[in-house]
């Protein structure tokens, strides 16, 4: 893993090389552009359905159904966005979603990094058992745990609260995250730790000041994957907000567009477009680290 970290990434390595360019000046470059052109066409087809969602968000119901596949609306209905934002309560849902997602991601990162760290670097009683149980449950479909989780939250008095929802989201699963961190920390040379100890750093300080910052790529990965799962999670937020509609998240709030006899398709599309943006921004922002993080993990 350390080698991955210290090795220049693909992008950074490229400008240094120029030997082959001299030997095969045209053909390779042309090849690359041809390849890019093909990929661009494929990518456009690939994201067409998503463009369609965006197009639908500025059409009215008739436009969606009569317009079929055309992306351009006859009339731009930006009011779908204002409807989604204010009337359907999406401003509030957005705040809720941000609170829940950020808190969940924070808890997952800290607890998984901490657990991964001690699992990787210390021997303690029950370590093997812990790894074994974690690995075994990684493959159990957790989607069916909703009933016991609600039961538990009620016992704890956390039903209908943000905290209860956050704990439920951050508590179950995330085995992969623990194992990612463990894999990463296992490869950090002992000298680093020893140097810290010589400098007088304690256990916690070593972890928070040295180890956690080093694990940037893993953290990026865990952040993106957890963010993705939490942001779009539907069932848990649904059950946790029955009695408190004001606590709803975006994914649950979308239900409001499905009436008894009708669906507000354009409002739904606007809402979907809105909820897509933050997660997209996060991916673009963390893309490089994200890839590296998984690389490190996969390698270990």
């Amino acid at each position: 893993m350390t080698s991955t970290l210290s090795r220049p990434t693909a992008e950074r390595a490229s400008p240094a090389k120029g030997t082959d360019r001299r030997r095969l000046p045209v053909s390779r470059k042309t090849m690359r552009w041809v390849q890019t052109a093909i990929l661009v066409v494929v990518a456009l087809i690939w994201i067409y359905p998503l463009l369609w969602i965006f197009a639908a968000s500025v059409k009215d119901a008739t436009g969606i159904f009569a317009g079929g596949l055309s992306l351009l609306p006859e009339q731009w209905h930006w009011d779908n966005y204002s409807r989604a934002w204010s009337e359907a309560g999406f401003s509030r849902y957005m705040i809720n979603t941000v609170i829940v997602t950020v808190a969940t991601v924070a808890i997952v990162v800290v607890r998984c990094a901490a657990a991964g760290y001690v699992i990787a670097r210390y021997r303690f009683r029950g370590r093997r058992l812990l790894i074994g149980v974690l690995a075994a449950t990684m493959f159990i479909p957790t989607g069916l745990f909703i009933v016991p989780v609600v039961e538990l939250s009620d016992v704890l008095g956390l039903l209908n609260t943000h905290l209860g929802l956050i704990l439920a989201l951050a508590g179950g699963g995330h085995v992969a995250a623990v194992l990612l961190y463990a894999g990463f920390f296992a490869q950090i040379p002992k000298e680093l730790e020893e140097a810290a100890v010589v400098d007088g750093a304690g256990f916690a300080r070593t972890f928070f000041r040295i180890m956690l910052p080093l694990s940037g790529p893993i953290t990026a990965t865990v952040v993106v994957l957890t963010f993705l799962a939490t942001w779009n999670n539907f069932f848990l937020p649904l059950v946790f907000t029955f009695s408190v509609p004001d606590n709803r998240t975006l994914a649950v709030g979308m239900l409001a567009f499905e009436g008894t006899n009708s669906t507000d398709w354009s409002g739904l599309a606007a809402a979907a477009s809105l909820s897509l943006l933050p997660i997209l921004a996060l991916f673009v922002l963390l893309q490089r680290h994200f890839v590296e993080g998984i690389a490190g993990a996969v390698k270990s």
């Binding site: 607890r111 957790t142 256990f203």
Partner: peptide, 22 residues
């Protein structure tokens, strides 16, 4: 003590939200 503290959140949450539901 530190080790216990570091593992505790995961053990507790995992026990409550994964093991117990199973």
């Amino acid at each position: 003590g530190w080790i216990a503290l570091f593992v505790a959140p995961t053990v507790v949450l995992f026990g409550l939200y994964t093991l117990w539901p199973s």
